Amino acid sequence: MSALNTATSPVAVKRGSVTWRLVKVEFTLYVREKVAPIWGVGCPLIVLIILGSIPALREPPEAGGALTIFDMYVPVLILFNLAILALTALPNTLAGYRENGVLRRMRTTPIGPARLLTAQLVANLVIALVAMILFLAVAGLGFGVDLPRNLIGFAVAWLLAASALLSIGLLVTAVVPGRNSASAIGTVLFFPMMFFAGLWVPITLMPPVLRTISHYTPLGAGMQAFQDAYLGGFPSALPLLILAAYAAGCAVVAVRWFRWE
């Protein structure tokens, strides 16, 4: 048994090191090309600062109200960041690789779709994590917004929401032929998802039918889980299960349907 472990461990280490090198390369390219930092981080952060600078949005809607309108928009903008990364930055990057023949050349290597998509997922998760911490810091230090009362519940909800959104982005990336198709599909998905996250109309003010639909969308489920954490409770099981189902299902389909060219 020890001989078998000795023989197989170098292979496992080599595979792990290849994935890690891919993650570092993809992260470096994302930062160098500035697509994810500018659109995925900079754009939502500017919106956050603009909204926080409007005094009326930082006043409770009713006398003695616990949350201001701006307080309720902070988690929406965190989801906004995830949606831009997942539906704009990620698909355009990999679709560009396919369009320029990079993936065709990578097909001759032992990397495989699962390892390539994992590297994209991890690189974007790192950028999204930095953005989330930055948003909470700016909202708290700059505009007095409290942190979620249940930080563990918020962290779990954020991780599942990020995984779900990025897995959807990987699924789009797996099948589109080039950047134009990636942009079109990403745009078609982005605006309805943000609507159901409450970007334009708060979920609580939606008609019952739209509110129900919202709860079963990835961003609507994410918003529901965030609100539970902000109010001090651990997110309820249903939105977490919905997010986990999106994450696992889309990731598996993305690996299975992945096209090199």
Rank of each mutant, 00 (worst) to 15 (best):
M1S: 10
S2F: 13
A3V: 08
V11C: 12
R15N: 08
W20C: 09
V23W: 11
F27D: 00
T28P: 14
Y30R: 15
Y30L: 15
I38N: 12
C43S: 15
I46S: 07
L51C: 12
L51I: 00
G52T: 05
G64F: 04
A66R: 13
D71E: 12
M72R: 15
M72N: 12
V74D: 01
P75T: 08
P75H: 08
A83G: 06
L87P: 03
L94P: 05
L94K: 10
R98V: 04
E99T: 05
G101S: 03
T118P: 01
T118C: 10
N124E: 11
A137M: 09
G140Y: 06
L141A: 14
L141G: 02
F143I: 14
P148F: 15
P148E: 03
W158I: 11
L159N: 01
L160H: 04
S167R: 00
S167W: 07
P177D: 04
P177K: 00
R179V: 14
S181D: 07
G186S: 00
G186N: 00
T187V: 00
L189H: 01
F190C: 00
A197V: 01
L199I: 08
W200R: 07
I203H: 10
L210F: 13
I213M: 13
I213R: 09
H215I: 02
P218L: 10
P218W: 03
A221T: 09
Q224E: 13
Q227E: 15
G232F: 05
S236G: 13
L238W: 01
P239S: 08
L240S: 01
Y246V: 00
A251Y: 13
R256Y: 08
